[in-house]
C-alpha cells in the first residue's frame, strides 16, 4: 500500500499545458489552468506566434516550455495541442514524465478535414456564421447550455488548417512516457475513434472517456480536472491498456 500522492509533495510534478485551436491556454483552459495551479507549477504553451506553421513548430514550442521545468514535467495537451504533445513525446521521450492527450487524434478524421475546410471557406468569405457553425460542431447537445462562441481570428484559422494536416501515426511507437488518452463520447470534430486509436497505438497508454463534445474543456472542466489531476500525480495507477471507468458520483 502506498501513501496517497497528496501526502507526498514530490509527486506534484510541473505541468506543461498545451492549448488547442485557440492557441492560448487562457482561452482553452479558463477553469483547468487556475485549478491545476493550486497544486502544480503550470507552464503555458502559446501557439499564437506567426512562425508556428508545422507539427515540428508546435513540438518546438512545447520543447521551450518543457525546458523551463526543473524536472521532466507532465505534458497535457488538448485537441491540436494533444497531437503536438504526442509528437513531442515521440521526439524527446526522456524530456517528460507523463503525457496526457485530451480530444486528440492519430490521423485527421474525414470529419475533421471537412470541419477545417468549412472553417477556411467561411473565413475566406468573412462569413458571420463561422463562429455559430463552429460552435455547432464543437459542443455536444448535452453541453449546449455552456456553449461559448469560439474565437475566430487569423490565429485560430491558421491552427485549424494546420490541425487538419497533423498525423502522428508514424510517431506513436516512439512514445514511451506513461500516457493518458482522454476521449470525448460526443466528439464530432476529432472523433472518439481517433482518441481510441491513440490509446491502441501508444504502448503505455490508459484510456478515459468523458461524456462531452470536442469542447470538453468548457463542457466538463471539473471532470476533466479530476481525471487529469489523478493521472499526473500517479500516472501508473492504472496499468497500460486500462480502460478507466467513469466515476459514478
Amino acid at each position: 500500500m502506498t501513501e496517497h500522492p497528496w501526502r507526498a509533495p514530490s509527486r506534484r510534478p510541473s505541468v506543461v499545458l498545451v492549448p488547442g485551436f485557440s492557441g492560448r491556454t487562457g482561452e482553452d483552459f479558463p477553469f483547468l489552468l487556475p485549478m491545476l495551479e493550486r497544486r502544480h507549477r503550470v507552464v503555458s504553451v502559446d501557439f499564437t506566434t506567426p512562425g508556428v506553421r508545422t507539427l515540428g513548430d508546435l513540438a518546438d514550442r512545447i520543447g521551450v516550455a518543457v525546458a523551463r521545468c526543473d524536472e521532466p514535467p507532465a505534458v497535457v495537451g488538448y485537441s491540436l495541442g494533444g497531437v503536438a504533445a504526442a509528437a513531442f513525446a515521440a521526439q524527446q521521450p526522456a524530456a517528460l514524465s507523463s503525457l496526457a492527450v485530451v480530444a486528440g487524434w492519430m490521423t485527421p478524421a474525414p470529419k475533421l478535414v471537412a470541419f477545417a475546410g468549412l472553417w477556411a471557406e467561411l473565413q475566406g468569405e468573412r462569413s458571420a456564421v463561422l463562429a455559430a457553425a463552429a460552435r455547432q460542431a464543437l459542443y455536444s447537445a448535452d453541453g449546449w447550455d455552456c456553449a461559448r462562441v469560439p474565437r475566430v481570428d487569423d490565429i485560430t484559422t491558421r491552427l485549424v488548417a494546420l490541425g487538419s494536416t497533423l498525423d502522428v501515426s508514424a510517431m506513436t511507437p516512439g512514445i514511451a512516457a506513461p500516457t493518458l488518452v482522454v476521449g470525448c463520447a460526443s466528439d464530432e470534430v476529432a472523433t472518439t475513434r481517433q482518441s481510441k486509436l491513440l490509446f491502441g497505438a501508444i504502448a503505455d497508454a490508459r484510456y478515459a472517456q468523458i461524456d462531452a463534445g470536442h469542447a470538453v474543456v468548457h463542457e466538463r472542466p471539473a471532470e476533466l480536472l479530476a481525471v487529469l489531476g489523478a493521472f499526473v500525480t500517479e500516472p501508473t495507477r492504472y496499468p497500460a491498456g486500462a480502460l478507466i471507468g467513469e466515476d459514478r458520483p
Partner: peptide, 8 residues
C-alpha cells in the same frame, strides 16, 4: 453524473 460535475 452531469449534475455532480456541474456542481463541482
Amino acid at each position: 453524473t452531469r449534475l455532480f460535475w456541474k456542481a463541482e
